[in-house]
Design a protein around this nucleic acid. Structure first.
Lengths: 126, 126, 126, 126
DNA sequence: GTGGTCTAGACCACT
DNA sequence: GTGGTCTAGACCACC
């Protein structure tokens, strides 16, 4: 099943976001072996070079560790994953606030909405 | 400049969302004349039939009023616009909460984040 | 005249070194326009993608600034160039010391040699 | 594992440099028997004629001595090895000074750098 | 014209 | 088998 990509953002960046979300969501545990470039490329339905570019990006962000000829693993550094999680969350919050602002909602109204919807929504409360 | 459309949703629904956002954002005032189907179709770079389908949808949602031979105007019913605004907002809040839940954030953490980011973000408070 | 490349290091990294040396040596002034990817690729006798990879690297190191559709310029930040210059120099010194160490020369002998050869060599003294 | 050769210099000269470095580094002691042309050729992955040419060169430089029918040995003349060592060192120093000059470093700056880096580097002082 | 992205297919070194 | 590099050629958005 090929992945779906948006036309207005580079595919490799979308792959970065998807894989980053997977790592943050512990779909791949810390230190666990990561699928090969070729496998991921086939799964995603993109050229191996495109997948390669995405993985290099994740490497530069410190989420993956490359061992030449033995493949990649998720970083053992849990803190790095935590940092990325907070970064992604912060960005989502900002996007959300910008959208709500565009609809004319003030900060307090937004918080009220989040509280009431959040209770119905049954957010995990972790 | 033609509008950009996503391939996996019907174009007319995407147009509905765009125009609805414009109306909610008061880009078109209540009671104001709406551009013709032909003009909008050309601007958006779509077939007039597609644009027509979108406008019919907006009529059914009560946001546009058709006056035979004099074109369409935005509804005078401010409440209807308000209801749509609240509907869109509610949907955005839910999407946001689902995403944050996926990142492992509980409701209280989300609210805390929204409060702190909201102050930096300088949301209008309007 | 195509550039000569060594077989045991990636071409794009060798290009990075060459261009970095050019920038440090003020062959391109700060803020000056940089040749296009295609031009450089042709001059060097490599594929444009390879040259692109090298330029991206120089960008990440802060030596080049990219302006989409208007080309690249050398950074205006003279300090960044100075930092790179010191970094390159430090690396050369270390390589040199390692080689001399391998020949059995101690630090004081090396310094003596550098002093005597340096005077004959007529190093600029600048 | 075959040796790696550069395409722009004759292979036999590159072999000369490698073997000379080995002799200077005392990898072969003075007076010690040297491997046969055939063995060296196979190790290096080159034609025996090429290796032969390299060894003849080393003989002419006085580093190897040929004893008909008993093969080659490293010269007993320690001074000759010392002279070669100094020659190689001198050439490295000059190359180094030329590079540093190209980076805009004056002789005194170079010496200062060598002193400070040398202390960190922990050059043997032997 | 510019940089950026993507594909297709190839070769290499390492294990 | 793995990741890494390179080429060739294409299309896009921007100005």
């Amino acid at each position: 099943m090929k992945w779906k990509f948006d036309n207005d953002k580079p595919i490799y960046l979308q792959i970065v976001e998807i894989l980053k979300a997977d790592i943050i969501a512990k779909k791949y545990e810390v230190g666990q072996k990561f699928p090969s470039v070729r496998d991921l490329a086939q799964i995603a339905g993109v050229n191996p070079n495109t997948m390669q570019k995405a993985l290099v990006q994740l490497e530069q962000e410190g989420l993956l560790i490359t061992n030449r000829a033995s493949g990649r693993v998720v970083t053992h550094d849990g803190m790095q994953i935590t940092r990325e999680r907070e970064s992604v969350a912060s960005q989502k919050v900002n996007t959300f606030l910008t959208e709500m602002d565009g609809l004319g909602y003030g900060l307090e109204e937004v918080i009220t909405l989040v509280e009431t919807e959040g209770k119905e929504h049954g957010i995990s409360g972790n």
